[in-house]
Design a protein around this nucleic acid. Structure first.
Lengths: 230, 230
DNA sequence: ACTGCATCGAATATAGATACTTGGTATAAA
DNA sequence: TTTATACCAAGTATCTATATTCGATGCAGT
């Protein structure tokens, strides 16, 4: 049988996924030194694959390498928060304008589908499950909108900024998802966004998108200050 | 003496620079398999540092990794050429609009300085030197314009697309720099661009920038077709 | 001609050797 | 007495070399 269930994934690639997840989830603090001995123990891997994974994360700016002095988790700061969200909002605005120019009927349908799935979340057992489900569907909704631009490379660049922002966004998620009031506001913003998009009002839609994406900034600033991360 | 002149750069980082250079310069063909034995021999390094360098290049999409089957140079295609240049033109347009909103007097001065340096190239000994000098100054000119957006992360994303496009751009360079006619046209486009930027006409400037950045596409398409790279 | 087996080559991982940095302590000078 | 510097020891990153595993190719046998 050639249908082997184990495609034998390269250990470096697995190490990459696990490390990325642990960094964005805050298992490793910003600025923290990533000791090879610790990582070896935690993931049960040799140094080689770990160095490979770390090299990739350096390229994605989630980890910084200091020559001959090992690796550290990239630091977080209020300045980076502001710039990262601004850059992302501007880029997403551009992508949305292009999507409105270039998107077809299937694109519109996909947006409506994802918006519906997002707005109707029920039957969740635990708060953590709510967070996971809402987050997944929220991402899917925004990705559906962006995909209309039909440019793989713009979408790739969008992904890259998204990965960098994820650590900050994670701080915001807990504050938002567990507040019925905040959740309701998001619901309204999304509905308004969909409406303007379907009317193909590019300029207005881009403005709304930029504004929508900037709303978490004050909240995250507050959380970071409170926790002394700034 | 603590002033050691050798900061003892990690071999992985050097390997990264050399490999990147050799890939963008076409020493390794698109799609070509990167044999560890070959690389070891060529750069005089062990496998470890090479794997590190390759991992970073994978994150930058210049190399693709096939699990358990080593690494290959990322393929080139007409489809990627078109999308890459489109994405870059759109992004650069956005950045220019922001730069015109946000740039100060020092920014304007820097643009004028770089434009002047670019337009007055003389005293070159060889054609290859002309290519190098012109390319360096051309990049500096465009970077000076972009830097006005004051967003490190947008500039970082711009760099990333630029690195990906460099292989294609290199094909175009030889066709343009060695033609006095093409060079003169570029000179005029740059002058017109500077004029509109200094007048702070954001919309018009962005349009011109997008158009300016798309001009190499037909030429590169022609070269690729001629050489059977498509 | 096709299938199964063996051999070869390449990628991957681990383990060990080397060289660097860092923190502490002791000594000397102010 | 205090401060600064130099030296020493422990820990850590980095590299090279070796072993293992996986895939591919060629040959032989049916």
């Amino acid at each position: 049988m050639t249908m082997d269930s184990s495609p034998r994934q390269n250990l470096g690639i697995s190490a990459y996924s696990w490390l990325k997840r642990d960094i964005t989830r805050g298992v490793f603090q910003p600025g923290e030194k990533l000791l090879m001995s610790r990582l070896k123990e935690r993931y049960g891997l040799g140094i080689g694959p770990l160095r490979e994974a770390l090299s990739q994360l350096v390229a994605e700016r989630l980890v910084v390498a200091i020559s001959q002095r090992g690796y550290r988790v990239a630091p977080m700061s209020l300045a980076e928060l502001a710039d990262l969200y601004d850059a992302r909002a501007q880029l997403e605005g551009l992508i949305l304008q292009l999507a409105i120019e270039r998107g077809d009927d299937a694109w519109e349908a996909e947006i409506l589908a994802k918006a519906h799935t997002l707005s109707k979340i029920m039957e969740v057992n635990s708060p953590d499950e709510l967070l996971d489900v809402w987050d997944t569907r929220h991402k899917a909704f925004h990705t559906a909108i962006a995909s209309g631009c039909r440019s793989p490379h713009l979408l790739q660049v969008r992904e890259s900024l998204f990965d960098q922002v994820e650590r900050y966004r994670h701080l915001w998620l807990r504050e938002t998802v567990f507040s019925e009031e905040a959740l309701e506001r998001k619901r309204q913003e999304h509905a308004a966004l969909v409406e303007v998009i379907l009317e193909r009002r590019a300029e207005r839609a881009a403005d709304m998108m930029r504004e929508h994406l900037m709303t978490p900034v004050p909240i995250i600033t507050e959380v970071m200050t409170r926790r002394g991360l700034a």
